[in-house]
C-alpha cells in the first residue's frame, strides 16, 4: 500500500480525507506542487498520474495506491531542468511563479496528448489528428490559470519546445 512519487514509494496516509495534493506537499514533502484553490478551479496542483495530468486537489490519496505520480520535481531539477522548464525561463513564462509548476506539468502532458491525437474544443476536424495551432495550445492550457497574465509567454515557451520535438 504505497504511492510512488517521482520513483520513490510513500506509504498511504492514515486519514482518508488527505487529498493527493496535500499528500504530495506535506507527507512526501514535495511542495513544488501548489495549492491555489483546492477545488479543481485553477490547475496549480496539476500532476501526472501514470503520465496523465489531473488536478491532485480533487483526488484522495488513498485511491492512488500503486499509482505512479510525477510532480514538477520529477520533471527536472536545478541541475538538469527539462526542456519545458528551461523554455519557461527563456520565454519568461511566469511571473510570481506560483502557477508555474502546474503549468509546466500541464504543458508537458499536453504535448503528449497532442501527439496521441486527443481532440480538444479547438480541434476543427474531429476525425483528423489535431494540429499544433496556437488556438489548440491555448485551449488545452486553459485549465491552468495564471493571474500574473503570463499566458502569451507560456504559449511561446510551449511553441519553442514543441518545435524542437517536431
Amino acid at each position: 500500500m504505497a504511492i510512488s512519487i517521482n520513483g520513490q514509494d510513500y506509504p498511504l496516509p492514515e486519514d482518508p480525507r488527505t487529498s493527493l495534493l496535500d499528500f504530495i506537499r506535506r507527507d512526501a514533502r514535495l511542495p513544488g506542487t501548489k495549492k491555489g484553490c483546492d477545488h479543481g478551479q485553477c490547475g496549480a496542483c496539476t500532476v501526472l498520474v501514470g503520465g496523465v495530468r489531473i488536478n491532485s486537489c480533487l483526488s484522495l490519496a488513498v485511491t492512488h495506491d500503486g499509482d505512479e505520480v510525477t510532480t514538477i520535481e520529477g520533471l527536472g531539477t536545478l541541475a538538469a531542468p527539462s526542456a519545458m522548464q528551461s523554455a519557461f525561463v527563456a520565454h519568461d513564462g511566469f511571473q510570481c511563479g506560483y502557477c508555474t509548476p502546474g503549468q509546466i506539468c500541464s504543458a508537458t502532458a499536453m504535448l503528449q496528448e497532442l501527439a496521441a491525437g486527443w481532440p480538444s474544443d479547438a480541434t476543427a476536424d474531429l476525425e483528423a489528428a489535431p494540429n499544433l495551432t496556437d488556438d489548440e495550445i491555448r485551449e488545452r492550457m486553459s485549465g491552468n490559470l495564471c493571474r500574473c497574465g503570463a499566458y502569451a509567454n507560456i504559449l511561446a515557451a510551449i511553441r519553442d519546445v514543441a518545435g524542437e520535438s517536431a
Binding site: 479543481g40 495530468r53 489531473i54 488536478n55 500541464s106 485549465g143
Partner: peptide, 9 residues
C-alpha cells in the same frame, strides 16, 4: 466542458 485535467479524471 471543464478542462483536460478534469476530463482525464
Amino acid at each position: 466542458g471543464a478542462t483536460q485535467q478534469l476530463r482525464n479524471k
